[in-house]
Amino acid sequence: MRPAIEDAVDDLLDRLGEAGADGRPADFMNEFAFPLPVTVICELLGVPRADRHRFRPLATDLTEALELSGTTVAPGPADAAARELGGYFTHLIDERRAAPGDDLVSVLVAVRDADDGRLSDEELLANLILLLVAGFETTTNLLGNGLAILFGHPGVSAALRSEEIAISAFVEEVLRYDSPVQVTTRLARASGLVVEGIPIPEGSDVILLIGAANRDPHRYRDPDRFDPARSDIKPLSFGAGPHICIGNSLARLEASVAFRRLLARFPTLSAAPAPARTRRDRLVLRGYETLPVSGRRRLPHQKGARDV
């Protein structure tokens, strides 16, 4: 996927530069952080380019169901988004069944049609919706959170450009310091479970605070300080063990390519003084709704040229 990601990053950096021409503020989230992971996951799945613009509002509505409201609410935007996405992928499944392509939807449809019990119709549809939404929601937040951190730590930007700090280490520390996913849940499937002396009855829902675990003072020295030079950074932002996010390597690759090329192309990029950036009104998914930026780019990108 690296060549496709690099091409997508270069194209979107051009778009970001055009949006910020003549000193106008450009919204990093709208021009780059959202379209990059959407482009990548849709290329992987085989979603036509013309359909991709519709997914951001649908994902926003659908992920509202992840929030810990503590109450049962009447059907609303999340249900409507689920129905629309279900209808979309049902149509795409039918298209790929009639004319398979070189994409993940076609592969999964073939597995379903093998009728060997590995994948039901319901599982096929649910997994396609999950892969699409999870494939860009968290990566979008990772990109926005990382850039906001760079604006607050100019010395880190200089160290990344000089390669004093590795991009991969920076990405890991962003994941630890400002995790795109702050909370997850698990179901206790056995009796007799005890965590830190607290009994967990079988069948209980357990809320796990990933953001707090990533700043555990028993695990990290001075945990509230952003420090990509830390040794042994292992954030829990993508989960762990058999439940780890299957897209974690892809998200890390997208972020590494994006930040390396962004820093090279826009050496004076800074937070725009106005309008002010806005956070999303969420607990589980942590990121920015808007992140206005300004700055002159170094050179227009040329295909085949190195961004250095």
Rank of each mutant, 00 (worst) to 15 (best):
V111T: 08
D222F: 08
A19M: 05
R56Q: 13
R280L: 13
H243P: 10
L285E: 00
R265L: 09
E254R: 04
T72A: 14
A65D: 13
F34C: 06
Y88M: 10
Y220G: 10
P199D: 08
T72M: 14
R161L: 13
A33C: 06
A98S: 14
L104P: 05
P273N: 11
H91G: 14
S162T: 15
F266C: 04
V156F: 08
G287M: 00
A65L: 12
V38D: 01
R189D: 14
V195K: 03
K303P: 08
L285R: 01
D115S: 11
P235R: 09
L291K: 00
L253G: 06
P25V: 02
V183S: 05
F238P: 01
D79E: 15
D79H: 14
G144Y: 00
D103F: 09
V308A: 13
T278P: 02
V40M: 06
P180V: 00
S294E: 13
G241S: 09
A126Y: 06
N127Y: 12
P235E: 07
R230V: 04
G197Y: 11
D216W: 10
A110M: 06
S204A: 15
A305W: 05
S179F: 00
P25H: 03
L269A: 06
A240D: 14
R24N: 09
P199Y: 10
S179K: 01
L85I: 06
A50E: 15
R265K: 13
R260S: 15
V195Q: 06
F55Q: 03
L128E: 02
P199H: 06
T268W: 07
V284W: 10
P57C: 10
S237G: 03
D7W: 04
L175P: 00
H53W: 10
L36W: 02
G287P: 00
V284L: 13
P201I: 04
Y88H: 12
P223W: 08
R260A: 15
I207T: 15
S204F: 08
Y88G: 11
R219C: 08
T39L: 12
D178V: 05
A33S: 08
E173D: 04
T268L: 10
I200V: 15
L299I: 12
R296D: 15
E43P: 07
H301E: 06
M29Q: 04
D222N: 14
G86Y: 09
I198S: 12
I244N: 07
G144W: 00
L193Y: 09
I210G: 02
V47D: 04
V284C: 11
D94K: 14
F34L: 15
P100F: 08
V133C: 03
N30Q: 15
P180H: 01
V133S: 03
Q182W: 05
V9P: 00
P228M: 03
L66W: 06
H301T: 10
